[in-house]
Amino acid sequence: MRKILVIGIGAGDPDHLTLQAVKALNEVDVFFILDKGEEKQDLVQLRRDILEQHVEQGSYRLVEARDPDRDRSTPAYSPAVGDWRRRRADICERLIREELTQDACGAFLVWGDPSLYDSTLAILEDILGRGTVEFDHSVVPGVSSVSALAARHRTGLNQVGKPVQITTGRRLAEGFPDGVEDVVVMLDAHQTFSRFADDDLHIYWGAYVGTPDEILVSGRLSDVADRIRTLRAEARERKGWIMDTYLLRRHSGQEPTGG
């Protein structure tokens, strides 16, 4: 039976790879890469660099396909994501069926950790549910952007005896969660933290964490919000895309220690 590995490759630093991930890379016959276009070719190149650095045998194949675009203009978020996932599943199903022989091992290299705001596992379950191609699959965890962000700012994600919540910018726009003093925000294209600049909050923000382009800012939100917006706009203009994550913390007397 075909075997599929879903391998977390970390937040951007090739050294984020775990020993388990390196061992898994060396089992793979075919690596599937979904290309997100010219603006993000450096993301594809980083995957190539990881393989060149960590795969001991050179007999593997790279199979690339164009990642379908998601409709970001519609206010109907869930249907748009569902449509995008179906089209992505169609592509992945074809790749597995046509590019992977029955006894071979294929792999998808996932940014960060496959369990955190990534669609690969759900897409593979969708493909298996169709019954058109059979395979076994397993997951290798990776260093997430969340853990990398906390490490770079030399802080924990939660305060003593208190919970932390991980959410999206879209959900944060509905209000700061009740009963939580630490909120990690991902997938925020609209800089939702700006809505809370008058609250007594600290922010630990990072973009391109783990890469040579890494940018870190921390401090009282009211003091650094404008700086983050400016840096973010400049970085997006320069690279054509941005991946950023941040932790919002209600003030508790603990001063930030990061950059």
Rank of each mutant, 00 (worst) to 15 (best):
M1F: 03
R2N: 10
K3G: 09
I4A: 13
V6Q: 11
I7E: 10
I7H: 05
G10H: 06
G10P: 03
G12I: 12
D13R: 04
P14C: 13
H16G: 04
L19S: 03
Q20K: 13
K23C: 02
A24C: 00
A24M: 00
E27H: 02
V28D: 10
D29I: 01
D29K: 00
F32H: 01
D35G: 01
K36F: 10
E39P: 00
K40S: 14
V44F: 06
R47W: 11
I50C: 00
I50W: 08
L51A: 06
E52T: 05
E52M: 04
H54E: 05
V55M: 14
E56D: 02
G58F: 02
V63H: 13
A65C: 15
R72D: 12
A76G: 02
S78H: 03
S78D: 08
A80Y: 04
A80R: 08
V81R: 05
D83K: 12
R86C: 03
I91T: 07
E93M: 08
R94Y: 04
R94K: 11
L95Y: 03
L95Q: 02
I96H: 05
I96E: 07
E98M: 11
E99P: 01
A104W: 00
V110A: 08
V110E: 03
G112S: 12
D113H: 01
D113M: 01
P114V: 08
Y117E: 12
D118H: 00
S119P: 13
L121H: 07
A122C: 02
A122G: 09
I123G: 01
I123A: 07
I123L: 15
L124H: 06
G129T: 03
G131E: 10
D136Q: 15
H137E: 07
S138T: 11
V139D: 13
S145C: 10
L149P: 02
H153W: 15
R154Q: 12
V160F: 14
Q165V: 14
Q165R: 10
T168C: 02
R171L: 12
P177T: 05
E181T: 10
E181M: 03
D182E: 13
V184E: 05
L187S: 03
H190Y: 07
Q191E: 08
R195L: 15
F196V: 09
F196A: 03
F196R: 12
D198P: 01
D199G: 00
D200K: 07
G210T: 10
T211N: 14
V217E: 08
L221D: 04
V224K: 01
A225R: 06
R227M: 07
R227P: 00
I228D: 07
T230E: 14
L231S: 07
R232V: 05
E234F: 00
D244I: 00
R249M: 04
H251I: 06
S252R: 08
G253V: 07
T257L: 10
G259W: 07
G259V: 06
